[in-house]
Simulated scan of single mutants.
Amino acid sequence: MDLQPGRVANMVARARQAEGHVVCHATLGTETPAICRGFADGPDQGRSLALCLA
């Protein structure tokens, strides 16, 4: 994806703040969006409600 500098860091920060997650770019607009693997594998994702439930 062609993202502006700092965009990924902003998405991750917002997801952490909301105890949420980042949706995988390959699954955007599909019936079954998935959690971004890069986000899930990143450090300190333990607060994500979706990942806690998984």
Rank of each mutant, 00 (worst) to 15 (best):
H21I: 12
A50N: 04
D44A: 06
P43T: 09
G20C: 03
R7A: 11
V12P: 04
R14F: 01
G38E: 15
A26E: 13
A15E: 08
R47N: 13
S48L: 06
H21T: 14
G6T: 04
L3C: 08
Q4T: 08
D44C: 08
V22D: 08
T27D: 06
P43G: 08
A26H: 14
L53Q: 12
H21G: 02
S48Q: 10
A15G: 10
G6A: 06
R37K: 14
F39N: 08
Q45T: 15
R16V: 11
V12T: 15
A50L: 13
R16F: 02
R47E: 07
R47A: 11
A15M: 07
T30I: 06
A54S: 13
V23K: 04
H21E: 00
G46D: 13
D2L: 07
T30V: 05
P5L: 07
H21Q: 11
Q17E: 13
G29Y: 10
V8G: 10
M1C: 03
R37Y: 06
D2R: 14
R37L: 08
M1F: 01
V8Q: 05
A50E: 03
R7E: 11
S48T: 08
R16H: 10
H21R: 09
G42N: 04
R47L: 07
A18C: 08
R14V: 11
A15T: 12
R37G: 12
V8A: 12
Q45P: 01
N10F: 00
L53R: 14
A26Q: 15
E19R: 15
A18I: 07
G46C: 05
Q45K: 05
M11N: 12
G29W: 15
A54D: 12
D44F: 02
R37N: 05
L28E: 13
V8C: 02
L3K: 12
